[in-house]
């Protein structure tokens, strides 16, 4: 089986390498991919929507349908993961707590009484990770706010610099996943609960689709942001500009929370008691 696979792969590799002569040269300005439709975007984005970042304009305006369904795909991936994996944590399993003043680790099994959830003296820890992790805790504590501000910057400045909803959303999700990795999964869940993550993923998709549906209500076709002129109180070009921004926020919300939700489900294999 392996030799058969190897022969097939080598044969196809040879054919593809041979055919690579027919591709346009690297950096060719008149290659077929950049000579029909794409010059239109470079010429017309400023006229149509006042957005200098052509990629953002195409993403949320010219190809708005595509991006809406990409967001829906991301959301349904989160849902699929949830339905595949989620289950109740086993009740018989013992839990570990650290007594902070003394640094002693306490193991509580089945019948034992657990400390309250917001106790300042006892902190729940994973059974796999017991050492006291001062450096990791402090480093992430100082890094996370700056990374989050950067993520919000990337979302908000998607019109003027490389960025937008997808990138900013992933960076924002990375901070919360970093927090959950550096402490433990329960700490992450206390910050962004599973309910908050799943509901705001749905809200993100709803903002996008709702902005599109709003255009129908106001008398234009789906996702034609010109219809939002009166809502924003501007002319038709600036209405597109703000429409793109609203849609980017929806994308950022959906992507952030779906990434967090995926992490919760995958790292604890659906039990949400302790993760990586």
């Amino acid at each position: 089986m392996k030799t058969f696979a190897r022969i097939t792969i080598l044969f196809c590799l040879g054919v593809f390498l041979w055919q690579s002569w027919d591709f346009p040269d690297w950096g060719d300005k008149d290659s077929p991919a950049s000579s029909h439709l794409s010059p239109y975007f470079a010429k017309n984005t400023m006229k149509d929507s006042h957005v200098p970042n052509i990629v953002s304009a195409i993403l949320a305006d010219y190809r708005g349908f595509d991006t809406m369904f990409e967001t829906a795909v991301v959301f349904s991936a989160g849902l699929a993961c949830f339905f595949l994996l989620r289950r109740k944590p086993p009740k018989t399993k013992s839990k570990y707590y650290r007594h902070l003043p003394t640094g002693i680790t306490v193991k509580i099994t089945g019948e034992g009484k657990e400390p309250s959830k917001d106790s300042k003296v006892f902190r729940q820890i994973d059974s796999l990770w017991t050492p006291y992790d001062l450096i990791i805790r402090k480093t992430t504590q100082y890094i996370i706010p700056f990374v989050q501000i950067f993520a919000l910057y990337v979302v908000a400045h998607g019109h003027y610099s490389p960025g937008g909803g997808f990138q900013g959303g992933v960076i924002l999700a990375a901070t919360i996943i970093l927090f959950a990795v550096s402490r433990n999964l329960v700490a992450g869940l206390r910050w962004v609960s599973e309910k908050a993550a799943s509901v705001s993923a749905a809200i993100g998709v709803f903002i996008y689709a709702g902005a599109g549906a709003m255009c129908i209500v106001l008398g234009k076709v789906f996702l034609n942001y010109e219809a939002l002129m009166e809502v924003f109180g501007t002319d038709s070009v600036m209405a597109r500009y703000y429409g793109i921004f609203v849609v980017e926020i929806g994308v950022a919300l959906a992507v952030t929370t779906v990434m967090i939700w995926l992490y919760y489900n995958l790292s604890s294999s659906g039990k949400h008691d302790e993760g990586l």
């Binding site: 470079a42 993403l59 190809r63 595509d66 990409e70 991936a77 997808f166 990434m259 995926l262």
Partner: peptide, 16 residues
């Protein structure tokens, strides 16, 4: 810009 847009969404969908 068009391949950039396509791949931007493709990266996120590949993560999903």
């Amino acid at each position: 810009p068009l391949p950039h847009v396509l791949m931007l969404t493709a990266i996120v969908v590949s993560v999903a």
